[in-house]
Amino acid sequence: MTEAPPPSIARTLIKTVALVGLTAALMTSLRFSTTIANGVDHIAGTRLWSSLYSIAGASDATQRERLIVIGVAVACFLLALPIVQAGEWAVDRFRARR
């Protein structure tokens, strides 16, 4: 097996921008999709989130909203990460065919 060359700085920057952009796009989709927003509201009302509120010390509505936004950001990031990785894999395969 041959060893892959180390990734370039440009490629790392492109992947970082893609990851941040896709995460922001996924978070923005909550604003325009009532189905996704209703799902987040449902999850935020579960016992698990109630436990997280008490563990994090979120006693008022503002602190609870911040905790929800953090959860949404983490979930969107974790969803965006494999999408960017799959995109990188697809670009590598496309370049290898050429």
Rank of each mutant, 00 (worst) to 15 (best):
N38A: 10
T16L: 13
L79K: 03
R64A: 04
C76E: 13
W89H: 09
L19N: 04
A24H: 01
V69S: 05
S29F: 15
L79W: 11
T35V: 13
A44L: 10
R66L: 14
M1D: 13
G39R: 04
A4S: 12
D92S: 11
V74I: 13
S29G: 09
I83V: 15
D41N: 10
K15W: 12
Q63N: 04
A24C: 08
G57P: 10
A44Q: 08
V20R: 01
A18H: 07
R66F: 08
I43D: 00
A90V: 06
S29H: 09
E3S: 07
L26D: 09
R95K: 15
R97D: 03
G45S: 02
K15L: 14
A90G: 06
R64E: 08
R93D: 09
D60V: 06
V84E: 05
C76P: 03
A56K: 03
P6R: 07
A10M: 08
I14D: 10
G45Q: 03
L30S: 13
G39S: 03
D41I: 00
V20C: 06
S59A: 11
V17C: 00
V40A: 10
S29L: 12
E3Y: 07
V72E: 14
I43T: 03
T46Y: 13
A90N: 02
T28H: 15
L78T: 06
L30Y: 14
F32A: 05
A25S: 11
K15V: 06
Q85V: 05
T62D: 13
V20D: 02
I68R: 05
L19A: 07
M27R: 10
R11N: 10
R31H: 12
T16Q: 04
P7H: 12
I36N: 04
I68V: 14
R97T: 05
F77R: 01
G45I: 00
S59N: 07
L78I: 10
R95E: 15
W49A: 07
G45L: 02
R31D: 06
S8T: 15
L78C: 10
R97P: 06
L78S: 05
E3Q: 09
Y53E: 11
A44E: 06
I55W: 15
S8W: 02
P82H: 05
E65C: 00
Q63H: 06
V91E: 08
L52E: 07
G45C: 01
G71H: 02
F32P: 00
A44R: 14
A73S: 11
A75Q: 01
I70T: 01
R93G: 04
L26H: 08
S59M: 05
P6W: 00
V17S: 02
R98F: 14
